[in-house]
Simulated assay, not measured.
Amino acid sequence: MPSFLRLLCIIIAQLWAVNANVEKTVFLGPSPVTLPNVTPSLDDLRLDTLDPAHLAILATKLPVQFPSRSAPRGLESWYLLRGLEDGRRYEVRICWPATQPTDFWLDAYSVAHVFDTPSLISSLADYSDKRQAPEWDELGHSGEEAPPQSILFLRVQAAASYYSSNRTLMEHPLPVDVDIILDPFILNILPHSLGPTAIYISIVSGAAWFLSGYVYCWLLSVANEHPSKAHPD
Rank of each mutant, 00 (worst) to 15 (best):
R88P: 03
R69A: 08
D43C: 07
A133W: 09
Q65C: 05
P232E: 08
S70Y: 11
F210G: 09
I10Q: 11
H172T: 07
E135N: 11
T60R: 05
P30M: 08
K229I: 04
D129H: 12
E91L: 13
L62F: 06
S68V: 02
L7K: 10
R155S: 08
Y79Q: 08
T34Q: 01
V92M: 02
H172W: 10
V92K: 01
C9M: 09
L220G: 08
Q149K: 15
L190E: 00
G87S: 10
P184H: 05
I10H: 10
I189V: 03
D44T: 05
R131F: 02
S165H: 13
I199M: 11
H141W: 13
I11N: 06
H226M: 14
F104E: 00
A20T: 02
L15H: 13
P2Q: 14
G206T: 07
A208Y: 09
P173N: 04
F153W: 02
P118V: 09
S221C: 12
A71R: 15
D51N: 15
P63C: 07
D179M: 10
P196R: 08
M1W: 08
L211I: 08
L139Q: 14
N166M: 09
G74P: 01
E171T: 06
Q65R: 14
E76K: 15
A207Y: 15
Q157Y: 09
I201N: 07
A56C: 05
Y79V: 03
A71M: 12
P40S: 00
D129I: 06
L5D: 09
R69N: 09
D129T: 06
E135P: 03
V222S: 11
H192V: 04
D43A: 13
G195P: 02
A133E: 06
S161L: 08
A108M: 03
V178Y: 14
R46N: 04
A17F: 10
V111E: 07
V33W: 00
E85D: 13
L75T: 02
P175R: 13
P40W: 00
E91H: 05
R155H: 04
I12L: 14
P101N: 14
C9Q: 08
E85N: 14
E145Q: 15
I94D: 01
R89C: 07
E85R: 15
R155I: 01
Q100L: 04
P191K: 01
S41L: 13
P36Q: 01
N21F: 03
D51G: 02
P147K: 03
L169R: 15
P2R: 15
L211Q: 11
L219G: 10
K61Y: 12
D179K: 13
E144T: 04
P72S: 11
W209S: 13
L28D: 06
S31Y: 11
F27H: 03
V33S: 08
A208S: 15
T117F: 01
S193Y: 13
L187G: 06
L80V: 05
P32V: 03
P134T: 04
P30I: 02
D48I: 03
L154V: 01
M1Q: 10
